[in-house]
Simulated scan of single mutants.
Amino acid sequence: MSLENLIEIAAVSRTYLDANENTVEALKGISLSIKKGEFLSIIGPSGCGKTTLLRLIAGLDAPESGKITLEGETITAPDPHRGYVFQQGSLFPWLTVEKNIAAGLKARGVYQKEKGEVAKYLALIGLEGFEKAYPHQISGGMAQRVAIARSLINRPAALLLDEPMGALDSFTRADLQDKLLELWQRDQTTMILVTHDVDEAVYLSDRIVIMTPRPGTISEILDIRLPRPRHRNGAEFTALRSSILEKLHLASAGLQPEYAI
Protein backbone atom coordinates (compact mmCIF):
# COMPACT_ATOMS: atom_id res chain seq x y z
CA MET A 1 0.00 0.00 0.00
CA SER A 2 1.32 3.44 -0.89
CA LEU A 3 1.95 5.88 1.95
CA GLU A 4 0.89 8.80 -0.25
CA ASN A 5 -2.25 10.58 0.93
CA LEU A 6 -5.09 10.66 -1.59
CA ILE A 7 -7.77 12.53 0.37
CA GLU A 8 -7.25 15.20 3.01
CA ILE A 9 -10.09 16.20 5.33
CA ALA A 10 -9.17 19.35 7.26
CA ALA A 11 -11.24 20.65 10.21
CA VAL A 12 -14.56 19.84 8.54
CA SER A 13 -17.83 20.67 10.27
CA ARG A 14 -21.43 20.33 9.04
CA THR A 15 -24.74 21.49 10.50
CA TYR A 16 -28.23 21.29 9.06
CA LEU A 17 -31.86 22.01 9.97
CA ASP A 18 -34.09 19.11 10.97
CA ALA A 19 -37.82 18.78 10.17
CA ASN A 20 -38.64 21.07 13.10
CA GLU A 21 -36.21 23.77 11.92
CA ASN A 22 -33.81 22.96 14.76
CA THR A 23 -30.08 23.25 14.07
CA VAL A 24 -28.35 19.88 14.22
CA GLU A 25 -24.56 19.66 14.44
CA ALA A 26 -23.73 16.54 12.42
CA LEU A 27 -19.92 16.80 12.26
CA LYS A 28 -17.47 18.88 14.26
CA GLY A 29 -13.82 19.47 13.40
CA ILE A 30 -13.17 16.28 11.44
CA SER A 31 -9.56 15.97 10.25
CA LEU A 32 -8.38 12.81 8.51
CA SER A 33 -5.84 11.78 5.88
CA ILE A 34 -6.80 8.82 3.67
CA LYS A 35 -3.96 7.00 1.98
CA LYS A 36 -3.86 6.04 -1.65
CA GLY A 37 -4.78 2.38 -2.07
CA GLU A 38 -5.94 1.75 1.49
CA PHE A 39 -9.17 0.17 2.71
CA LEU A 40 -10.62 2.42 5.40
CA SER A 41 -13.78 1.76 7.41
CA ILE A 42 -15.79 4.28 9.42
CA ILE A 43 -17.86 2.95 12.32
CA GLY A 44 -19.90 4.51 15.11
CA PRO A 45 -23.42 4.73 16.54
CA SER A 46 -26.40 5.65 14.37
CA GLY A 47 -26.63 9.38 13.74
CA CYS A 48 -22.94 10.07 14.36
CA GLY A 49 -22.42 11.53 10.88
CA LYS A 50 -20.76 8.61 9.08
CA THR A 51 -22.90 8.95 5.95
CA THR A 52 -22.71 12.75 6.13
CA LEU A 53 -18.92 12.49 6.02
CA LEU A 54 -19.05 10.07 3.08
CA ARG A 55 -21.40 12.40 1.18
CA LEU A 56 -19.01 15.29 1.77
CA ILE A 57 -16.14 13.24 0.33
CA ALA A 58 -18.37 12.37 -2.64
CA GLY A 59 -19.20 16.03 -3.25
CA LEU A 60 -22.92 15.35 -2.73
CA ASP A 61 -22.90 17.85 0.13
CA ALA A 62 -20.63 20.71 1.19
CA PRO A 63 -19.05 21.40 4.60
CA GLU A 64 -19.99 24.44 6.66
CA SER A 65 -16.32 24.97 7.43
CA GLY A 66 -13.09 23.21 6.65
CA LYS A 67 -11.98 21.65 3.37
CA ILE A 68 -11.77 18.25 1.66
CA THR A 69 -9.27 17.69 -1.15
CA LEU A 70 -8.44 14.81 -3.46
CA GLU A 71 -4.86 14.91 -4.75
CA GLY A 72 -4.71 18.57 -3.76
CA GLU A 73 -7.91 19.61 -5.56
CA THR A 74 -10.84 20.83 -3.43
CA ILE A 75 -13.93 18.63 -3.75
CA THR A 76 -16.91 20.78 -4.71
CA ALA A 77 -19.21 18.45 -6.69
CA PRO A 78 -19.80 14.77 -7.54
CA ASP A 79 -17.37 13.21 -9.99
CA PRO A 80 -17.10 9.69 -11.56
CA HIS A 81 -13.58 9.48 -10.14
CA ARG A 82 -15.22 9.18 -6.73
CA GLY A 83 -17.57 6.22 -7.12
CA TYR A 84 -20.48 5.95 -4.66
CA VAL A 85 -22.39 2.77 -3.78
CA PHE A 86 -25.56 3.18 -1.74
CA GLN A 87 -27.03 0.69 0.74
CA GLN A 88 -29.67 -0.48 -1.73
CA GLY A 89 -27.50 -0.24 -4.84
CA SER A 90 -29.82 2.21 -6.65
CA LEU A 91 -29.75 0.40 -9.97
CA PHE A 92 -31.83 1.77 -12.84
CA PRO A 93 -34.82 -0.65 -12.87
CA TRP A 94 -35.50 -0.13 -16.58
CA LEU A 95 -31.95 -1.16 -17.59
CA THR A 96 -30.44 -4.63 -17.81
CA VAL A 97 -27.41 -5.64 -15.76
CA GLU A 98 -24.99 -4.87 -18.60
CA LYS A 99 -26.67 -1.54 -19.37
CA ASN A 100 -26.55 -0.55 -15.71
CA ILE A 101 -22.80 -1.18 -15.70
CA ALA A 102 -22.43 0.69 -18.99
CA ALA A 103 -24.30 3.71 -17.55
CA GLY A 104 -21.09 4.90 -15.92
CA LEU A 105 -19.29 4.96 -19.26
CA LYS A 106 -22.20 6.71 -20.97
CA ALA A 107 -22.30 9.39 -18.28
CA ARG A 108 -18.66 10.16 -19.09
CA GLY A 109 -19.25 10.07 -22.85
CA VAL A 110 -16.74 7.24 -23.42
CA TYR A 111 -19.08 4.30 -24.05
CA GLN A 112 -18.20 3.77 -27.71
CA LYS A 113 -14.51 3.81 -26.90
CA GLU A 114 -14.64 1.61 -23.79
CA LYS A 115 -17.77 -0.56 -24.18
CA GLY A 116 -15.58 -3.67 -24.21
CA GLU A 117 -14.96 -3.03 -20.52
CA VAL A 118 -18.55 -4.02 -19.67
CA ALA A 119 -17.93 -7.72 -20.35
CA LYS A 120 -14.68 -7.53 -18.39
CA TYR A 121 -16.41 -6.13 -15.31
CA LEU A 122 -19.27 -8.60 -15.61
CA ALA A 123 -16.65 -11.35 -15.36
CA LEU A 124 -14.86 -9.65 -12.48
CA ILE A 125 -18.05 -9.54 -10.37
CA GLY A 126 -19.03 -13.08 -11.36
CA LEU A 127 -22.26 -12.26 -13.19
CA GLU A 128 -21.57 -13.68 -16.65
CA GLY A 129 -24.84 -15.10 -17.96
CA PHE A 130 -26.91 -12.38 -16.25
CA GLU A 131 -26.15 -9.64 -18.79
CA LYS A 132 -29.76 -9.35 -20.00
CA ALA A 133 -31.39 -9.68 -16.58
CA TYR A 134 -33.22 -6.73 -15.04
CA PRO A 135 -32.69 -5.64 -11.40
CA HIS A 136 -35.96 -7.23 -10.26
CA GLN A 137 -34.77 -10.58 -11.65
CA ILE A 138 -31.57 -10.80 -9.60
CA SER A 139 -30.84 -11.09 -5.87
CA GLY A 140 -29.86 -8.25 -3.58
CA GLY A 141 -26.28 -9.47 -3.46
CA MET A 142 -26.09 -9.58 -7.26
CA ALA A 143 -27.56 -6.08 -7.46
CA GLN A 144 -24.85 -4.76 -5.15
CA ARG A 145 -22.19 -6.39 -7.31
CA VAL A 146 -23.65 -4.59 -10.31
CA ALA A 147 -23.63 -1.27 -8.42
CA ILE A 148 -19.99 -1.79 -7.47
CA ALA A 149 -19.05 -2.68 -11.06
CA ARG A 150 -20.91 0.40 -12.35
CA SER A 151 -18.68 2.57 -10.18
CA LEU A 152 -15.42 0.69 -10.71
CA ILE A 153 -15.72 0.67 -14.51
CA ASN A 154 -14.91 4.41 -14.34
CA ARG A 155 -11.62 3.49 -12.62
CA PRO A 156 -12.27 5.91 -9.74
CA ALA A 157 -9.52 7.17 -7.48
CA ALA A 158 -11.76 6.22 -4.53
CA LEU A 159 -14.81 4.00 -4.10
CA LEU A 160 -17.20 5.21 -1.38
CA LEU A 161 -19.38 2.48 0.12
CA ASP A 162 -22.38 3.47 2.26
CA GLU A 163 -23.31 0.25 4.08
CA PRO A 164 -23.68 -1.65 0.80
CA MET A 165 -23.96 -5.00 2.60
CA GLY A 166 -26.19 -3.87 5.45
CA ALA A 167 -29.44 -5.26 4.00
CA LEU A 168 -28.01 -8.65 2.95
CA ASP A 169 -28.20 -11.97 4.77
CA SER A 170 -25.01 -13.11 6.51
CA PHE A 171 -23.98 -15.64 3.83
CA THR A 172 -24.47 -13.19 0.96
CA ARG A 173 -22.75 -10.44 2.94
CA ALA A 174 -19.66 -12.61 3.54
CA ASP A 175 -19.56 -13.56 -0.14
CA LEU A 176 -19.75 -9.90 -1.22
CA GLN A 177 -17.07 -8.93 1.29
CA ASP A 178 -14.71 -11.45 -0.32
CA LYS A 179 -15.56 -10.17 -3.80
CA LEU A 180 -14.93 -6.59 -2.68
CA LEU A 181 -11.54 -7.59 -1.26
CA GLU A 182 -10.68 -9.37 -4.49
CA LEU A 183 -11.46 -6.25 -6.52
CA TRP A 184 -9.57 -4.01 -4.09
CA GLN A 185 -6.48 -6.21 -4.14
CA ARG A 186 -6.62 -6.43 -7.93
CA ASP A 187 -6.65 -2.67 -8.61
CA GLN A 188 -5.67 -1.15 -5.23
CA THR A 189 -8.51 1.36 -5.56
CA THR A 190 -8.86 3.37 -2.36
CA MET A 191 -12.03 2.16 -0.62
CA ILE A 192 -13.89 3.97 2.15
CA LEU A 193 -16.64 1.95 3.84
CA VAL A 194 -19.32 3.15 6.25
CA THR A 195 -20.61 0.21 8.30
CA HIS A 196 -22.27 -0.75 11.59
CA ASP A 197 -20.76 -4.23 11.38
CA VAL A 198 -17.61 -4.51 13.51
CA ASP A 199 -16.71 -7.92 12.04
CA GLU A 200 -16.99 -6.46 8.54
CA ALA A 201 -14.71 -3.55 9.41
CA VAL A 202 -12.05 -5.80 10.93
CA TYR A 203 -12.25 -8.31 8.08
CA LEU A 204 -11.84 -5.72 5.32
CA SER A 205 -9.87 -2.78 6.65
CA ASP A 206 -6.34 -1.47 6.84
CA ARG A 207 -7.59 1.17 9.28
CA ILE A 208 -10.82 1.75 11.21
CA VAL A 209 -12.09 5.21 12.19
CA ILE A 210 -14.29 5.21 15.30
CA MET A 211 -16.69 8.16 15.56
CA THR A 212 -18.53 9.60 18.55
CA PRO A 213 -22.26 10.35 18.71
CA ARG A 214 -23.51 13.66 17.31
CA PRO A 215 -21.81 15.97 16.89
CA GLY A 216 -19.64 13.46 15.10
CA THR A 217 -15.95 13.63 15.93
CA ILE A 218 -13.18 11.09 15.51
CA SER A 219 -12.65 9.20 18.74
CA GLU A 220 -9.83 6.95 17.55
CA ILE A 221 -8.16 5.56 14.42
CA LEU A 222 -7.01 1.95 14.59
CA ASP A 223 -4.41 0.26 12.41
CA ILE A 224 -5.55 -3.29 11.62
CA ARG A 225 -2.36 -5.33 11.29
CA LEU A 226 -3.89 -8.78 10.97
CA PRO A 227 -2.39 -10.67 8.00
CA ARG A 228 -4.63 -11.49 5.04
CA PRO A 229 -6.58 -13.65 4.42
CA ARG A 230 -8.20 -13.06 7.79
CA HIS A 231 -10.04 -15.70 9.78
CA ARG A 232 -13.16 -14.47 11.53
CA ASN A 233 -12.94 -17.09 14.30
CA GLY A 234 -9.21 -16.70 14.93
CA ALA A 235 -8.00 -15.64 18.37
CA GLU A 236 -6.46 -12.35 17.17
CA PHE A 237 -9.57 -11.44 15.17
CA THR A 238 -11.86 -12.20 18.13
CA ALA A 239 -9.71 -10.21 20.55
CA LEU A 240 -9.59 -7.22 18.21
CA ARG A 241 -13.36 -7.32 17.69
CA SER A 242 -13.92 -7.33 21.47
CA SER A 243 -11.53 -4.41 21.91
CA ILE A 244 -13.33 -2.37 19.25
CA LEU A 245 -16.72 -3.07 20.79
CA GLU A 246 -15.39 -1.73 24.09
CA LYS A 247 -14.01 1.34 22.34
CA LEU A 248 -17.40 1.91 20.68
CA HIS A 249 -19.09 1.88 24.07
CA LEU A 250 -16.57 4.40 25.40
CA ALA A 251 -16.85 6.61 22.31
CA SER A 252 -20.63 6.54 22.66
CA ALA A 253 -20.43 7.96 26.19
CA GLY A 254 -23.00 5.55 27.55
CA LEU A 255 -25.19 5.41 24.42
CA GLN A 256 -25.85 1.97 22.95
CA PRO A 257 -24.34 1.79 19.42
CA GLU A 258 -26.05 -0.18 16.69
CA TYR A 259 -23.84 -2.78 15.11
CA ALA A 260 -24.04 -6.32 13.76
CA ILE A 261 -21.76 -9.24 14.56
Rank of each mutant, 00 (worst) to 15 (best):
N233D: 13
F237E: 15
M211A: 11
L193Y: 00
I218F: 07
Q177E: 07
T189C: 10
A174W: 04
R230D: 14
D187Q: 09
M211N: 12
G166Q: 11
D187W: 06
R207C: 05
L160V: 10
R214H: 03
R186S: 14
I192C: 03
P227V: 05
R228M: 06
R230Y: 12
G216I: 11
D162V: 14
L240T: 01
D178E: 08
R241I: 01
A167G: 06
T212H: 04
P164C: 14
S219M: 06
Q185K: 02
A239K: 11
E182W: 04
D223C: 05
R214C: 07
D187E: 10
A167P: 09
D187C: 05
G234N: 15
I244N: 10
E200S: 01
N233Q: 14
L180R: 01
N233V: 12
A174L: 09
G234A: 14
Y203M: 10
D206S: 05
T189P: 07
D187I: 04
L181V: 07
S170Q: 09
L181D: 06
H231W: 07
Q177M: 01
L240M: 02
R241W: 02
R225D: 08
P156R: 02
V194F: 09
M191W: 09
R241F: 02
I210M: 06
I221W: 03
Q188V: 02
A158P: 05
P164L: 14
A158R: 05
R173K: 13
L168R: 10
A239M: 08
I221H: 04
R186Y: 13
L161M: 09
D206P: 04
D187V: 02
R228F: 03
